[in-house]
Nucleic acid binder design. Structure first.
Lengths: 332, 332
DNA sequence: ATTTGCAATCGTAACGTTACGATTGCATCG
DNA sequence: CGATGCAATCGTAACGTTACGATTGCAAAT
């Protein structure tokens, strides 16, 4: 493998000059730069990542910490476009992206701490923020560049990209009301999950405006998988006063609910009106009338990387935040 | 950040001894080892990744090259469990996993070459093999440890994990015939894609056994997205002699086809029998009778990492290959 | 008393890069 | 003509780690 030393020897230059020439240092004569670059190309020189990292402290690696909801790998599908968006944007910016999957058994704070201490990454992307998320404080304290997908309820400025879950849930609930629904079921993940909390808040706002009291039994927690969603919705449908509307947490929640409906011979769009969030565009292709809030997760991924990159380059720069409105698409 | 030097200074030992003690070197007195480890723990020592990598040439990083089928991030859903399986297994083995997404515009060989030259990874996971895939020869030549998800038609031994697509497609076709189908449509990706080639071969075998001539118009290529699948199947259904059976390429192909069926008011399981491959377990939850070949992609991811790890540790060891049978699950 | 053998530890160099502070050669100025 | 300034380049040290070949101290053997 070619290195600076070899190129230097070949051209009777110093390693320093070669190093500088390759980054167009103003101290080097243009003709020398050209000679060096030609030689570098000829011998197929590529800078050694680790030599550089050791010297500069920069690794050109970003790390995304992604939680798996369940132990057996059945994760929210939005992660796929998110990952693709992040990896592509990272690559374009000259970074490589490392995925750190965590299981429900992992302590989220410890996962972050490990990344911090090893100093093997230039920046961190954290997701699934919880109320008062301790990772935010930790990362700010340690001055590790990071960006969050999602907000939390802390009174600190930090960079994030988030979807306006409150607004989306509000709108979703309103749509269902427009269809005549008054008993509206809502899927959430866990109460600590800040996105779920915001969704609950938006749902509550819409219900309050309509003067409908909230029935706690219609609010489902732990809707991580198709199985849990199906079982939950099946129970609801079996009640004496079953829901006529449903706001799903995500694609998996939707599929589970449809399964429960199908088993009872009920039709989505007539017996029960359904609205869901969707990032794979899957909901649109189901043979069922479903209202869809589509969120461009690949775009979120790109934005996350962009903000993180700025953070790394200029740690004292303005704290960028992005709040995306979901786009509502009525069923055809 | 704590380093060997600091620990050495604190204990009045040499850096060498500290380094050895931390890896339980037999040259170091047990009591010294204990002292060193205690100190390391106390100051929160973690080895610097880049110092080590520079010295040893090992990076403790694996890279998975994953192709995006389309420019706009709508990828085969099997990638999600695959990624999760890989990242978890990599983490357990002490590696971090880097995802290198490629777009249809990227040259696959060049993508691999870049990884090779930068020497920033200990091993490569390549996927979506094509006929006579040049990457296999390249990686063997350059002695870069790698493992493939999928086989190719080269007469060289190399490590891989693959799904028996020939068998799955054969079985799928047979199932459809058992339902009485004779006009059976088949979804493929691209002709070069080796998995598609195997599926075509299995389909052909079943058709030949049943004495049914193959109608090329029933074989759909480019079934990467729900859109393309829907459009294709819609055209087929409009024919004078439409298919009564369909073997889908994957979840997205299935959803697209269901969409086309739904638009025409046709029912899966009666008007058209459907069989699909599934790794997200999504197909099982659709309100439709669908035969499912379920493939445990998280398991595939784990196996890939396992084999790659062995390859890195012992490059001259036996070439491990794994061929997974798909598990057929009839619709309930 | 000197040598030998061994256990425990050490010092140095090296991996490839970059930052910093020299050093050189040459033209220009007073 | 000697001093000054500048452009171009250089040498060295350092990042944190590990490999290799010393070196030390001490007990046992000659």
């Amino acid at each position: 493998m070619a290195n600076l030393k070899q190129i230097a020897a070949e051209l009777s230059l110093s390693v320093t000059t070669v190093s500088r020439a390759l980054k167009d240092g103003p101290e080097v004569q243009p003709s020398t730069i050209a000679r060096v670059k030609e030689a570098a190309k000829r011998v197929g020189y590529l800078p050694n990542h680790h030599g550089r990292a050791l010297k500069t402290g920069r690794t050109q690696t970003l790390t995304a910490v992604l939680p798996m909801e369940t132990r057996d790998h059945l994760s929210d599908l939005l992660k796929l476009p998110l990952i693709e968006g992040m990896t592509l944007a990272a690559r374009q910016a000259g970074y490589s992206l490392s995925i750190y999957s965590t299981t429900p058994d992992d302590d989220p704070v410890e996962s972050v701490q490990r990344q911090l201490q090893a100093r093997s990454t230039d920046g961190l992307i954290i997701t699934r923020l919880v109320s008062g998320d301790p990772r935010v404080k930790l990362l700010l304290d340690k001055r590790m560049p990071f960006v969050a997908f999602g907000r939390t309820d802390l009174d600190i400025a930090y960079p994030y990209v988030d979807v306006d879950n409150e607004q989306i849930a509000y709108e979703a609930t309103r749509r269902l009301m427009d269809k005549g629904c008054r008993r509206i079921a809502l899927q959430l993940l866990v109460p600590e999950d800040q996105a779920s909390a915001m969704r609950l808040s938006g749902y509550g706002r819409a219900m309050a405006e309509a003067g409908i009291p909230i029935d706690q039994s219609l609010i489902g927690h732990g809707m991580f998988t198709m199985e849990s969603s199906a079982a939950w919705f099946d129970r609801l449908l079996a009640c004496s006063d079953p829901p006529t509307g449903l706001a799903c947490a995500n694609e998996l929640g939707l599929l589970g609910a449809l399964h429960a409906l199908g088993k009872r011979g009920l039709a989505p769009g007539s017996d029960v009106h359904i609205v869901t969030r969707d990032s794979t565009r899957l909901a649109r292709f189901l043979p069922a009338k479903i209202g869809v809030h589509s969120v461009d997760m690949a775009g979120v991924g790109r934005k996350l990387v962009e903000i993180l990159e700025n953070r790394i380059i200029n740690p004292l720069g303005p704290v960028e935040t992005i709040l995306l409105k979901g786009e509502f698409e009525p069923a055809e």
